[in-house]
Design a protein around this nucleic acid. Structure first.
Lengths: 347, 347
DNA sequence: TTGTACGCGTTATCAA
DNA sequence: TTGATAACGCGTACAA
């Protein structure tokens, strides 16, 4: 409405700065993007004009003109799941160090929502994408392929990655847990899983296959629910499994530490002795797991490193440095603690 | 290098779609943004062309031309601190429902880094900003003011908000905790704090002032460190405080649940009885706190709601609906559990 | 080292 | 209802 007044009316542009500094717009652009190519005197003058006007570059215009957005798109299935915090931190640390912005979306574990979110991300013209897992819709895969940008799929190892891949074998982890629990004297092993996304299913498959191989599989000891994990749910599922097995189960692999902690706390309330009457193993190795009493066995995953590696792969590709391997197995480690029998193996 | 081939070469544009559908570019734009203003036949034809080409709008061009980016900038001090997860979830839920994208940055609890990050955010031409707390640099405040967009400061109640504000009084929370702990029979209260950002300092100030008012303040029972919080650190600080007070302390307020859980686990290992020999109270009310044995007293904060409200305020302002109050006190609740004496008040 | 001309892909404005 | 034209703010290519 009213007349234009002072500076606060509209955002300053390159042209405004140029006018004040009495140079051309492109020179201002250079001062910002290639300071070495401008003479010190001019650079100084321009910088003063920039400060005076409080000039902030318009990234939309820059992206449009240069086809470089400086954005990395990241898609994760859940903002509440703490597991992704560490991964994100790794991504942000590396991306930020190279002046890349991160655009983050949450798919709520839904491939359809992921497809929509990926479309949203692509409309921002990111230079690369980091997405979770391999459960994309066909349409989503097509979009990604068409976009022709570096893509890293994280969290799990995939048979056929779209492009690059950083993760570990959830199947193998589940398998190893079963063997370790058997080795520590468990005889009637059960499984408790929630949400049951692709990775949890892999963990379960590995666990089940190992038990089957050892002739220790009892399907009634496998309890799952599509509900999201929580400590409260862990307690409930623990009770379910106990009653389903008439108390025969002497060891439980919980698909994550939330459930496992819930089971542990519930067992304490039920006066079930850990680990003598019941062994427990979780997944993800939260800090709590190492400090709770009794401490909780779990599968440690280098999440921060996973984020770092994924981002580094991308930065390298964007800088034309290429990557040694398109797929990186970041590994895992089964850590036995007091919730397992014989947590210290004999010498 | 090689010849252009097929579709995968370059991203389709509005003009490409227009050509295929045999209409003008602006018509395609309308099909996308104002479907009602285009005849059904044309709309159909255009939609087919869009699908055939896999057209995805270029948001940079759209932002530039329309001065609407559809982006909300969000700045938080830490990606690893679980506290912000719930807030973010609230923000993302509301923003997503209104088709806004969220650009998230992490300031690592540094006002200087925040200033840099806010500049980055502003360069993306967001339509509004959500930032944490009130510790901005002068330069940061100036940028924000100049940008002239809705800004919500979250997490704490501020004396002089830049614009809008959603939070609660950390000072009052600390004060209330002290009174409640005294009321449950604690006589020698201590405080354990880490990181010591503005909000933690407020909690401490409230706690200390309450003790002083009751003539119960002993400065030697106040233990702080700039280190980031962790469960491990909670155990260490617990021991520090015990030795600093020669074991006299009979109740501790930890500035967050990480520290409090660490203290609780450590006390178990030291065979100190909770709550008879030692009362414990944390802050933030993690799910773990309600289920650990003994359950941990804490201060519950409606974090998700805080994110929701902040985002709603912004959406309302952007839609010219205005907001009733620029400042919203979201409140808190001190929850006494088994780690406090007399956790159930007498009838 | 500095500047000119043009185009990036979209939308606002106005006209048909 | 549809379209032509001119911005939006910046960087590339080229020229001086």
């Amino acid at each position: 409405m009213g007349r234009a007044r002072k500076s606060s009316t509209k955002r300053a542009t390159l042209a405004d700065v140029a006018k004040v500094a009495n140079v051309s717009a492109i020179t201002v652009s250079r001062v910002i993007n290639q300071p070495g190519k401008v003479s010190p005197e001019l650079g100084q003058r321009v910088q003063e004009a920039i400060d005076m006007l409080g000039y902030i570059p318009n990234q939309s215009a820059s992206s449009l003109a240069s086809a470089r957005s400086g954005v990395i798109g990241v898609s994760i299935p859940s903002l509440s799941n703490v597991v992704f915090n560490d991964v994100l931190r790794g991504i942000y640390d590396v991306a930020g160090a190279s002046d890349y912005k991160v655009l983050l979306v949450d798919t709520h574990y839904s491939p359809l929502e992921e497809e929509k979110m990926v479309r949203t991300l692509l409309s921002q013209s990111p230079e690369a994408m980091i997405i979770t897992g391999g459960d994309q819709t066909r349409a989503c895969e097509r979009m990604l392929a068409k976009a022709g940008m570096p893509v890293v799929q994280i969290m799990e190892l995939l048979e056929q990655p779209l492009d690059m891949n950083v993760g570990f074998s959830h199947y193998q982890a589940g398998y190893d847990v079963a063997l370790k629990m058997l080795a520590t004297g468990c005889n009637q092993l059960g499984f408790v899983g929630a949400r049951m996304d692709a990775r949890v299913q892999q963990r379960m498959a590995g666990f089940v296959d190992a038990l089957r191989a050892k002739n220790k599989l009892n399907q009634e000891y496998i309890v799952t629910t599509p509900e999201p994990s929580s400590i409260a749910l862990g307690g409930e599922l623990f009770r379910s499994l106990l009653s389903a097995s008439s108390g025969a189960v002497d060891g439980i692999f919980c698909c994550n530490d939330d459930l496992a902690l819930g089971a542990l706390f519930e067992s304490q309330r039920m006066n079930i002795k850990i680990p003598t009457e019941m062994s427990l193993c979780g997944f993800n190795d939260f800090e709590t797991s190492a400090y709770v009493n009794p401490s909780l066995s779990s599968v440690h995953v280098p999440r921060y490193e996973m984020g770092v590696k994924a981002a580094e792969m991308i930065i390298n590709v964007l800088n034309d440095k290429g990557v040694a391997d398109k797929t990186l197995d970041i590994g895992f480690e089964v850590i036995l603690r007091q919730s397992s029998r014989a947590s210290v193996p004999p010498q």
